[in-house]
C-alpha cells in the first residue's frame, strides 16, 4: 500500500440535485478529510453531474474516502484518477494593472505559459492561463512581483485519455 501522503484526484458521478454537493463535502469534512480543489458541472446527461475533487491523503485513507462516498445514495460512481492516464488541467484568471514598466514582462510571461489576454480596459487587463497545476503555480509566481490586482483559479479537472 502506498503510504505517501500526496494529492489525489477523485472523479465522482452524482445525481444532479441541489444538496448532493453538500453531502459529498460533508462526508469528507465530517470525517476529517480536507478538499483541496473542487470542480462541478453537469455531464452529457443533464441528470448526472461530475464532481472532480482533490485531497491530500495516503492510499489507505483514500480508499476509506472512496468507500464512504460510495455509501451516499446519490453517488453513482467514484474513480480514482490519480493512477490513471489522464489529461489534467487547471485554469487561472489574473487581473493586472499594466504600466510602462511591467508591460513587456507580462507579455513575456503570457507567451511562456501560452496564456492570452481576455479583456483590456484602459490600463487593466485580465489574463487567462491554463495548464498543469505546476505551470499555473509557476505563472502565478512570475506574475506576482509585477502587481496582481486579483485572481481566480478553477481547481483541477481531469479526464481519462482513453475509455
Amino acid at each position: 500500500m502506498e503510504r505517501e501522503k500526496k494529492e489525489r484526484i477523485l472523479s465522482l458521478l452524482v445525481s444532479n440535485k441541489p444538496d448532493v454537493l453538500a453531502r459529498v463535502a460533508g462526508t469528507l469534512g465530517g470525517r476529517g478529510y480536507n478538499i483541496e480543489t473542487l470542480c462541478v458541472d453537469a455531464t452529457l446527461d443533464p441528470k448526472v453531474s461530475k464532481i472532480i475533487l482533490t485531497t491530500i491523503a495516503d492510499q489507505p485513507t483514500l480508499t476509506k474516502i472512496e468507500k464512504q462516498l460510495m455509501k451516499l445514495i446519490d453517488v453513482q460512481k467514484v474513480t480514482d484518477l490519480t493512477k490513471m492516464a489522464t489529461v489534467m488541467r487547471e485554469m487561472m484568471l489574473v487581473r493586472m494593472r499594466l504600466t510602462d514598466k511591467n508591460k513587456a514582462d507580462v507579455a513575456l510571461i503570457i507567451d511562456t505559459f501560452r496564456g492570452r489576454v481576455v479583456t483590456l480596459n484602459g490600463d487593466h487587463c485580465v489574463i487567462e492561463i491554463s495548464g498543469m497545476r505546476e505551470e499555473i503555480e509557476k505563472a502565478l509566481q512570475s506574475l506576482t512581483p509585477l502587481g496582481i490586482d486579483d485572481m481566480a483559479r478553477t481547481g483541477i479537472i481531469a479526464l481519462e485519455r482513453t475509455k
Binding site: 444538496d19 453538500a22 453531502r23 460533508g26 462526508t27 465530517g30 451516499l72 445514495i73
Partner: peptide, 11 residues
C-alpha cells in the same frame, strides 16, 4: 432538518 440530519441519516 435536511441539513441537520445529513450526517446522521442513511439518506
Amino acid at each position: 432538518i435536511i441539513g441537520i440530519t445529513r450526517p446522521c441519516t442513511k439518506h
